[in-house]
């Protein structure tokens, strides 16, 4: 279950809207925001794949300028793999075809 720390950058006039939209995601914990509309949040997902999807969805929001990952911990997935589980996209790896 990966955990990441992110900065979600919006614009001051859209900050409140973005904050309320983020509440829709059970995987997102908001820790604060500054006057320039930088939001500090923690994402807690069940897989790297889900992590990627959520970041992508937030990023696609018109009112969001950027999602920057500052921290990523995937030690659970490594453990799962070590125990023989097969994960579709561990650590966000995408195998080139």
């Amino acid at each position: 279950m990966p955990i990441s720390g992110v900065i979600i950058t919006s614009t001051p006039e859209h900050l409140d809207e973005v904050l309320s939209e983020l509440q829709q995601f059970p995987q997102v914990e908001v820790h604060g925001a500054d006057e320039k509309a930088n939001i500090v949040a923690v994402l807690d997902t069940t897989s790297s794949e889900e992590m990627e999807t959520i970041i992508d969805r937030i990023n696609k929001d018109e009112k969001v300028l950027n999602v920057g990952v500052t921290y990523l911990n995937t030690e659970d997935e490594a453990e799962q793999m070590a125990q023989g589980e097969k994960l579709p996209k561990p650590f966000g790896f995408r195998k080139p075809q």
Binding site: E52, I55, G68, V69, T70, L72, G92
Partner: peptide
């Protein structure tokens, strides 16, 4: 700075 997905503007 990392790559896509791990990008950070300011290294620590």
């Amino acid at each position: 700075h990392g790559t896509f997905g791990t990008f950070k503007l300011t290294p620590t």
